[in-house]
Amino acid sequence: MDPIATVVESAPQVAEPSSRFWEIFPSNSLFGQLFTIDTAIKIARVALALVLGLLFVGLVITVLKKMTSRRMDARTGGLVVKVAQYLGFAFILINTLDAAKVNLSALLGAAGIAGIAIGFAAQTSVSNFISGFFIVSEKTFAQGDVIKVGDTSGLVFSIDAMSVKLRTFDNQLIRIPNETLIKSNVSNITRFPVRRLNIDILFTYDTDIERAVDVLMDVAANCQNALKNPPPVFMVKGFSESGIGLFFGVWFATNEWFDGNNDMYVAIKKRLDAEGIEFAYPTMTIYPNAVKPGTGSGPSPRLRKKLPS
């Protein structure tokens, strides 16, 4: 048999299923137009780019998490990982669109315009995000520190890309945007191992100040939580309207400051009471002038007659 003739003869048999397929889905139908070999290859490439991208980014994030947990604090590490995640997802998106033969230049152009619009709309978020980097780099506080921002103080609960969350001492969660933190005065109360308790006391003018200071020093020396070194300090603040102002500072371990505060105030009050040393409070002393008859400073003789003797 002639081989060519065989091919010619067998050709209709091979094409038969395809013909049936195109009979069911004609090439001019919507499915026929969409589902071509090129489309199938494209879908496979997109799926491959997506899967490989996710695997690659997942691997990088895992390695990064391990590295940051060893070498950085939780707050910096978390931020680095989050940035890497955002970059990774952008990489997957671009790679997938490239695999889908989407014209990226046009898309990026459109994205640029959209970015400007979104940028204006999301400038606060962007500002918070960038502020987060400065907060991290300055290392002013870390998770677990007690900080004070304006009138708000509390334990740093978490440090996120956009905000810092504080747990206040009455157990409320407060979110402070990073931008606010950058602009505000932030006090880190627990940064150093020791902290001074500042006590302002006002004594009456008839108080023996030297004795009062000795008593205060003795109170501090007998307070178990008060540190021997640095020693307590005192300073006469000046003569005020109501008494003599005295500043007394006692050092405590930072984690014992609260107890130390209560112990010191109670002990000072008890001891000063026992020693007979008085606290001053706003008073006004009036010294009446002695009234001499006929000096003109008292009531007139007519009025004096009317007044009861």
Binding site: F192, A226, K228
Partner: peptide, 19 residues
Amino acid sequence: QRPFKTLYGTPDAGVVCRY
């Protein structure tokens, strides 16, 4: 004895110790 505490080192980097 009644335990008291002190700081060994400076207030910014010292160690709180038993005195």
